[in-house]
Amino acid sequence: MLSSAILLGPQRHVRIVQPAIDTLAATDDRPVALVSAGWEEREAEDHEFRDHVQRTVINLQVWARVERIFERDRELLTAMRHRHDTLRRVQELYRLRLQGAMEPTRELLRRPGDDQWLAAERHDALVMLQGIDSQHVARVAQVHAEFEQRWLPTERTSVQRERRDLQKKLTDVSCLCIAGGHIAVLLHRLRLFDVLAMHGDRPVIAWSAGAMALCERIVLFHDTPPQGSACAEVMEAGFGLVPDLVALPHAKMRLDAADERNVQLFARRFAPALCVLLDEGARIDWNGSRWSAVPTTNRLTEDGWVEEVGV
């Protein structure tokens, strides 16, 4: 668990990383480390970030390092591709069962009344959904464990070389910033190098997909996709470095917060974690023991409302 972290909404228009750095590392003028691996091939295009934070920035180039490893270590590349295919299959199978359970749960929440029988069915339906989510998280963890056991990625020469360099770069930074982007790319590449463990207990500031990666669970969501069902799904466990929170970036665009039942279902399914909407301008701070948020940061309530997180 981190002793201090700040999670933010998207940074394209409302840039608030710099004040977050000032909060966590005001008196520490050492450089700031940046992970922008979620931007994939645009990883190095960090000039806007540099202009904004007005500090020395060390881009850890996590994405490029993995690309280099793939060029040298074809066996690892093949193994990671195989793991990727397995994860896709596991996700598809989970989705089948999840979708079967979602609609009856929605319908139970839609039904008027609150008698003991309806309440019992609602409760059990939610427990079943939570069970499906937990089983999925466990299966994905098993895929990762089997991969790591078989291929020992951190012991491979190609990976060790990059890890040593990363370790060196992280020695003298004040805090670590993790940008958004492609959540699976970001998560798996951070995990390969164990960047967060290297960084230790120093402050972390993360936004969008970066914020999702720090949470205990990564929840993918979109209520109006052009194809397929609009059923939020758990991707896998995140790093679990901040507790009891589900990060929902770009919620204004992705989440139908006007649908009370939808909000209710979302909040109850992931309870007791707080479902926090990380839209532009949103900021929620973790001080090692509790959360606090700026007034414009909202959460979903189990009653079906969207309300300010509060203190």
Binding site: P10, R12, G38, W39, G180, G181, H182, I183, A184, S208, A209, M212, L220, F221, H222, P225, P226, Q227, E233, M235, P249, H250
Partner: peptide, 10 residues
């Protein structure tokens, strides 16, 4: 051409 809608949060 399905896009990476579910996986990208910039």
């Amino acid at each position: 051409f399905p896009g990476p809608l579910w996986l990208v949060y910039e």
